[in-house]
Amino acid sequence: MKISKEVKTALLALLAIALLIFGYNFLKGNNLLANNRTFYAVYDDVEGLAPSSPVTINGLQVGTVSGIRFLNKTGAILVSMNVQNEFQFSKTSKAQIYGGGIIGGKSLAIIPDYDGPMAKSGDTLPGEIDEGLLELVNDRLTPLQNKVEKAISSTDSVLFAFNDILNPESRQNLKQSLANFNSISEHFKNITGRTDNMLKNNEDKLSRTLSNIDKTTANLSKLSDSLSQVDIAQITRDLETAIHDFKSIASELNQGKGTAGKLLKDPTVYDNMDRATRQLEQLLQDLKLNPKRYVHFSLFGKKNKAYEKPKDSLK
C-alpha cells in the first residue's frame, strides 16, 4: 500500500505535535508515560511557589507542581501536584510549602502520615506554610532592629545630656574634684602608714592588753560561777520577811501602839515631854543663877536668901 505524501505530512505533523506536548510536559516535570498520582492542596498564600517546583517526601523529589490557580472569589489558591513515586501515605499527610532562600525558590514537601486511610490520586491534602530563611531572619531581626533603634535613641539622649552637663565650668569642677580625691587618697595612705607604724611600735602593749582582757574575762567567768552558786531564793525570802516586819512596825506606829507610836500619835505624851523639858531648863537656869542655894559651905552657919523665881526663857 502506497502512502501519499499528504498522509505522511499529516503523520509527521501529528508526531511533532505529540512530541511538543510530551516535551512541554516533560519540561514541566510531568512524565505522560509514567503512572502519576495527582494531589491537591489549598492555600491562602503560596509564598511565591511556581509551577514545576519540586515536590519532595523526606527530602527526596517525587514529583512536581503541575498547576496553580485561584479556587474561588475569596482568593483561595488551589495547587495541583504530580507524584510519580508509589510511596504510600495517608490522607492526613500535610503539603507544606517551604524554602525561599536568597537564590532558590519555594518547594513543596509532603509530610507523610501513616494513620488512617491511604491517600489516592485526586485527594486534597491539608496545606500549610513553613517559615523560610528570609521570613525567619526577618522575624528575628525585626525585634532586634527595634531594640537597636531604641538603644541608639537613648544613647543620643544620654550623650546630649552629658554634653549639657559637662560644660566648661563642670569640667573644671570635675578636674578639681579628681585632684581633691587624689589628695585625700594620699592623706589616707599616709594615715595608713602611720597606723601600721603605731601598731608595730605598740605590739607588746597590745599583746599585754589582750592578755589582761583574757584574765578579766576569766575573772568575770569565775564571778559568774560564784553568783550562780548564791542562793537567790533564800535572799529573796529574807528580804520579803524584812519588808513584812518593816510594814508591821510602820502599821503599829500609824496605829499609835508602843512608846514610839504614842510619841507620834498621842499629843499628851508630847505635851508632858515639852513641860518636862521646860522645867529641866528652868532648873538648870536657876542652878546657874543661884548656885549657893543648892551648894553652900559656911563655918558660921547658913543664911537663907529669899527665893527668886527664874526667868522663863521659853516664853
Results as ranks from 00 to 15, higher is better:
residue 86 E to K: 14
residue 90 S to E: 07
residue 92 T to S: 06
residue 95 A to G: 01
residue 101 G to S: 14
residue 101 G to L: 15
residue 102 I to E: 07
residue 107 S to N: 12
residue 107 S to K: 09
residue 111 I to S: 00
residue 113 D to Y: 09
residue 114 Y to L: 04
residue 115 D to Q: 10
residue 115 D to H: 14
residue 117 P to K: 09
residue 120 K to L: 13
residue 121 S to M: 08
residue 121 S to Q: 03
residue 124 T to S: 05
residue 124 T to E: 01
residue 125 L to N: 00
residue 125 L to D: 00
residue 126 P to R: 02
residue 127 G to Q: 00
residue 127 G to S: 08
residue 131 E to M: 12
residue 131 E to Q: 13
residue 135 E to F: 12
residue 136 L to V: 11
residue 138 N to W: 07
residue 139 D to V: 11
residue 139 D to A: 09
residue 139 D to T: 07
residue 139 D to F: 06
residue 141 L to I: 11
residue 142 T to G: 08
residue 142 T to A: 11
residue 143 P to C: 03
residue 144 L to Y: 09
residue 146 N to L: 02
residue 146 N to V: 05
residue 147 K to A: 15
residue 147 K to Y: 14
residue 148 V to G: 04
residue 149 E to Q: 09
residue 149 E to R: 06
residue 150 K to E: 08
residue 150 K to N: 11
residue 153 S to V: 07
residue 153 S to N: 12
residue 153 S to Q: 14
residue 153 S to C: 12
residue 155 T to Y: 13
residue 156 D to Y: 14
residue 158 V to N: 05
residue 161 A to H: 11
residue 161 A to C: 04
residue 164 D to Y: 00
residue 166 L to M: 15
residue 170 S to Q: 14
residue 174 L to D: 03
residue 175 K to T: 10
residue 176 Q to E: 08
residue 176 Q to S: 13
residue 177 S to R: 07
residue 180 N to W: 02
residue 181 F to K: 04
residue 182 N to D: 10
residue 185 S to R: 01
residue 186 E to G: 07
residue 187 H to R: 11
residue 189 K to Y: 06
residue 190 N to D: 12
residue 190 N to I: 12
residue 190 N to Y: 00
residue 192 T to F: 03
residue 192 T to Q: 02
residue 192 T to E: 10
residue 195 T to I: 03
residue 195 T to G: 01
residue 195 T to R: 06
residue 196 D to W: 05
residue 196 D to C: 01
residue 198 M to H: 01
residue 198 M to T: 04
residue 199 L to F: 04
residue 199 L to T: 00
residue 199 L to P: 00
residue 200 K to S: 04
residue 202 N to R: 00
residue 204 D to T: 02
residue 204 D to A: 12
residue 204 D to R: 08
residue 205 K to A: 07
residue 206 L to A: 02
residue 207 S to A: 10
